[in-house]
Amino acid sequence: MSDIIWPAGYVPGFTDNYVSNEVIVAGLTAADIWPFLAIPSRWPDYYANAADVQIHDGKGPELGLGDRFFFRTFGFPVPAKVVECVPPVPGQAARIAWHGWAGEVGAPDRLDVHHAWLIEDLSAGRVRILTQETQNGAPARELAAARPNPMINGHQDWLNGLVAAARQAKA
């Protein structure tokens, strides 16, 4: 199976927080999942922790490499930039990742994240959806110490909603 490609400064184990969530489900493909992930205006429809989505510079509705966008999540206003975008192609995992941040550079409450997704078709009509995020900054350290872990639970809600939305569209 494929894995996430990490940029310098965001490799798990060397950041202030890291979370990983994954589902493998039958009856869906990477092509079924992709439009619900790559079109962020759809996120609030199936994931309650995403709001106020905007794509900048007249781009969209689907995200592309280099696109800048904004959304609110986990109580943070998050400007973001797409740093990896590989739509589904037979025989290759689909990938999308963004760098997001909250706060001013150098501020004590600054948060920087790398949020990556990998969607890959598996044998027997199954699809694997992996989402991993690394974070740096004081808010990341607070999130890492919280129990239950809000990032693990939030991202699992995102995965569950994503799968449900794709299943409903296919029905």
Rank of each mutant, 00 (worst) to 15 (best):
E104G: 11
G66I: 14
G75L: 06
A107N: 08
S123A: 01
W158G: 14
S123V: 02
G137F: 07
H155C: 15
F76G: 01
R141M: 09
A146W: 04
N149D: 15
I39H: 12
H114L: 07
R141H: 06
D157M: 14
V78W: 03
Y47E: 10
R141E: 10
A165E: 14
I24H: 04
P148C: 01
G137A: 08
Q54W: 06
D52T: 09
L65I: 03
L111Y: 01
H115I: 09
V127F: 05
G58W: 06
R141L: 15
A116M: 01
P44N: 13
E133W: 08
I33W: 00
L28T: 05
E142I: 10
N160E: 12
A107Q: 03
G75Q: 00
Q54N: 03
R42I: 11
Q54E: 05
G100L: 04
R72L: 03
A31Q: 12
R42G: 03
I129C: 03
D57L: 03
I39N: 15
A38C: 02
V113T: 11
I55A: 00
L162C: 10
A26E: 09
F76D: 00
N153Q: 14
R95D: 07
I152E: 04
Y46D: 11
L118D: 07
L37T: 08
P87D: 03
E120T: 12
K81T: 09
W43R: 01
G91L: 05
A102D: 02
G106E: 08
G58S: 04
G60W: 13
A164F: 04
P35M: 07
W117V: 08
R126Y: 01
G27E: 08
E120Y: 13
V105K: 01
P150G: 15
G125I: 06
A124Q: 13
D157V: 15
Q92A: 09
Q156D: 15
Y46G: 08
G60Y: 15
L162P: 14
F76I: 02
N49C: 13
M151W: 00
H115A: 05
P88V: 05
I152T: 13
R128C: 05
P79C: 06
Q92F: 09
G154S: 13
W158C: 14
G100V: 06
M151Q: 01
A165K: 14
E104R: 11
A140C: 11
T131P: 10
G60A: 15
V83M: 14
G125Y: 05
E84F: 05
A116V: 04
P90N: 10
N49R: 11
P108E: 06
G66C: 12
P61R: 00
T134W: 04
E142Q: 06
P88S: 00
D121K: 09
A80T: 04
C85Q: 11
E62L: 04
C85T: 08
P88C: 01
A50Y: 10
R126G: 02
A165N: 09
E142K: 07
Q132D: 00
G125E: 05
A144E: 11
A97I: 01
P79L: 06
N153K: 11
Q135C: 07
K81R: 12
D157G: 15
